[in-house]
Structure formats: structure tokens, C-alpha cells
């Protein structure tokens, strides 16, 4: 979508630029066509389409109306992650591996104990910053069970490069087994 609009804009503008070099063309400039048509109408139409599309998509991703099936807290600390899950029988904290059920929407509350980090699992969702003093929220959903790599996406000092984690999405049986495993 975005790529298509961009390609179109590039072809139009650079096309005119190339055509301007031809010697056998009329030199009459229709001022309105160039300045109002090209300068105002052309970008406004394309930008409106892109912006409306972007905002609608953003609303869907932030999912104000979806209720997550599970909430976990991700706490960043130089240079690792702690994932905490509240259960009926107390809280469970595990470093650097986040277990989630596949096919269900999971809410991750992201915060930090020291500097700003950013929680990012490229194949599952966009990123959200982990900021000390703030509790940010992001929704994850892995339809296919498996292991997904995550990284810290905000520069946080010398250990930034190595501040990786992984998300393990379990199928229904695996999730039940995992539950039995971790809960006291």
C-alpha cells in the first residue's frame, strides 16, 4: 500500500524531471497544472489516503476494544529482560524468555528499572519503549507456535547489542504443560 503510493509518486515526479530534458517538447508551462495540480492536489490526495489507512490500521493494532486473554509484565534492566505473570497462585518471573499461548492475544505491560529500552519482537508486532516510571502496553499475537526472537531496540549502553530475548508461543497442549511446569 505505502510502497505502491510511494512508487507512483516517484514515477510521476522523476518522470517529469526526465521529460524536461527532451529537446522536442513544447515549452508552454501551464502554471495551474504544475503548482496547484502537482504541488497541492497530487500530494494531498495521496497523503490523505495514506494517513487514513495508517490511522485505521493503528487503531486496530492498539486494539482498544480487544480484551487480551493474558497479561504479562516485561521489565527491562541493563541488559536483560524479566517477564512476570500474575496467576491465581502468585507471580512467576522468568528472565529473557516470554512464554505465551499461540493464537491468543497477549497484553504485555512494558517498563524499565533503569534507562530507556524498547521491546521488539519483529515478527510479531511493532515496538514499544520501556521507560522508567511508565507502564506502556503492547499486544502480541502469534498464530503459529514456535520461537520468536526479540531485541532491545532503544540504545541503552554497552550491553545494548546483546540484550536479546525470545518469545515462545505454545500450542494448547504445550501451554497446559508449561503452566503445570512453572506454577508452584
Amino acid at each position: 500500500m505505502l510502497l505502491g503510493l510511494s512508487a507512483l509518486s516517484f514515477i510521476v515526479i522523476f518522470g517529469i524531471f526526465i521529460l524536461a530534458w527532451r529537446r522536442d517538447r513544447s515549452r508552454k508551462v501551464r502554471l495551474r497544472l504544475f503548482l496547484i495540480g502537482g504541488g497541492l492536489v497530487f500530494p494531498l490526495v495521496l497523503l490523505t489516503i495514506a494517513t487514513v489507512y495508517g490511522v485505521a490500521l493503528g487503531e486496530r493494532i492498539t486494539g482498544a476494544r480487544t480484551s487480551p486473554s493474558l497479561t504479562v509484565e516485561a521489565r527491562a534492566e541493563r541488559w536483560h529482560w524479566q517477564f512476570t505473570r500474575q496467576t491465581g497462585r502468585g507471580s512467576v518471573t522468568r528472565p529473557n524468555v516470554l512464554h505465551i499461548p499461540a493464537g491468543r492475544t497477549v497484553e504485555v505491560i512494558v517498563t524499565s528499572s533503569d534507562v530507556i529500552h524498547s521491546f521488539w519482537v519483529p515478527r510479531l508486532a511493532g515496538k514499544i519503549d520501556a521507560i522508567p516510571g511508565m507502564r506502556n502496553r503492547i499486544l502480541l499475537r502469534a498464530d503459529i507456535p514456535g520461537r520468536y526472537n526479540g531485541v532491545c531496540a532503544e540504545f541503552c549502553g554497552t550491553g545494548h547489542t546483546a540484550m536479546n530475548f525470545s518469545v515462545v508461543a505454545h500450542d494448547a497442549d504445550g501451554w497446559a504443560a508449561h503452566d503445570k511446569d512453572v506454577l508452584p
Binding site: L2, L3, S6, S9, F10, L47, A50, T51, Y53, G54, V55, L57, G58, I61, S118, W120, P122, A125, G126, K127, I128, A153, E154, F155
Partner: peptide, 17 residues
């Protein structure tokens, strides 16, 4: 053009940083 793409929030979340 990539700037306009980055101005779109969902795309930005993916490629920011």
C-alpha cells in the same frame, strides 16, 4: 517518500530504531 512512510504510525512502530 520513505519519510512519508515513516510518518504512518503502524509502519513506524515496525521500522523505528
Amino acid at each position: 517518500l520513505t519519510g512519508v512512510m515513516l510518518a504512518m504510525v503502524p509502519f513506524n512502530w515496525q521500522v523505528h530504531d
